[in-house]
Computed example of a mutant assay.
Amino acid sequence: MSVSVDMNWMDKVRHNRLPSQTLLSGQHSTKPLNERVESFSFFWHPPLMPTIANDSIPIGHFLPSFALPDVVRGTLVSHQEVCGKRAVLIMFVCRHCPYVAHVLKELIRLASDYQSRGAAFIAISSNDGEKYPEDAPAMLRQMAIEHAFPFPLLFDQSQEVAKAFAAVCTPDFFLFNSKGQLVYHGCLDESTPSNGLPVTGENLRVALEATLADKPIPERQIPSIGCSIKWLQ
C-alpha cells in the first residue's frame, strides 16, 4: 500500500525517534523518520500493538446464549450444558496469537485444578479462519489434541458469540457465578510475552476461589491484553 506523507505530520515527528518500522527495504532503523524517507511515497507497516479488553458486557450481566461446534468432537456445545455450575469460565483464544501461546500451559493447569471443584471451562475461537489459516477449525483441532485440552474448544465462525460477549482480544476471560452472572472480566495475571514476569494465573485464580466460595470478587480487575480478534470483513 502506497502512503502519501503529510508534511505537517512529518514536521511533528521530525525530532522523534520512532520504534522500528518495516520499510520497503525490509530493514529496521531507529533514525528519525524524515531521514529514512527518500520520496513522499513509501511502504510503511506500523508496529503491531496489543489490544486491551476495556469495554465489555457489564459485571452482573447474564451468560449470553451460544451453541457452537467443538473442533475436536464435532458436536455442538451450548451454554445450557454449563448452567448451574458453581463457576463458568469462557475463554476467547486462538492458535496464532503469541499472547495465547504464552499462557496456554497455565490455562490447562487452571482447568485441571478447578474443574474437579465444580467449575466449567470453555474455550472459543472467533477469528477469521480464512484470512488466518492457523485459526481455522482444522488447526485449532490439532492444537487441542496436541495439548490435550481438558475443556472443549469451540469455533465461532459467524463471530456472533464474540459480539454477544463484546470480546475484543485473545485471550479474553469471562467468569460467571452459579447464577450465570458475570463476576470477573480481567486478565489471567500480569505476565505478558515481553515483560519477563512469570505466568502464575494469580488474578484469575483469586477470582475463581472467590466465586467457588460465593464470596465477592475484588473490585479492581485488570483488563486482559492480547491480539485483537480478527473480524470478518
Results as ranks from 00 to 15, higher is better:
Arg73Asn: 10
Cys187His: 12
Arg14Tyr: 06
Glu146Tyr: 01
Leu197Gly: 06
Ala67Leu: 12
Ala207Tyr: 11
Thr22Asn: 13
Ser56Leu: 00
Leu104Lys: 14
Lys31Asp: 13
Asp172Asn: 05
Asp135His: 08
Leu197Phe: 13
Ser112Pro: 00
Phe176Ile: 06
His79Trp: 07
Leu107Ile: 09
Ser65His: 14
Lys163Ile: 06
Leu68Phe: 08
Glu219Asn: 12
Thr200Pro: 01
Phe149Cys: 02
Leu208His: 07
Leu24Val: 10
Arg73Gln: 08
Ser224His: 02
Lys179Asn: 12
Val168Tyr: 02
Asp135Met: 06
His185Met: 10
Ser78Phe: 07
Leu175Ser: 04
Ala144Ile: 04
Pro98Ala: 03
Thr51Asn: 08
Val13Gly: 05
Arg117Thr: 05
Ile222Tyr: 07
Gly118Cys: 06
Asp11Tyr: 07
Ile145Tyr: 00
Gln221Glu: 12
Gly226Ser: 08
Glu209Pro: 00
Val3Leu: 11
Cys227Ser: 13
Lys105Gln: 15
Arg95Asn: 15
Cys83Tyr: 11
Leu140Thr: 05
Gln221Asp: 09
Leu23Asn: 08
Val206Gly: 10
Ser126Arg: 00
Asp214Ile: 09
Phe173Ser: 08
Ser228Tyr: 03
Glu146Phe: 01
Ser158Arg: 12
Ser65Asn: 14
Ala123Val: 02
Ser112Asn: 14
Ala120Cys: 03
Ser224Arg: 02
Gly180Ser: 07
Ala123Thr: 01
Leu48Arg: 08
His79Ala: 11
Val77Thr: 08
Thr211Ile: 01
Glu35Asn: 06
Val3Glu: 13
Glu130Thr: 10
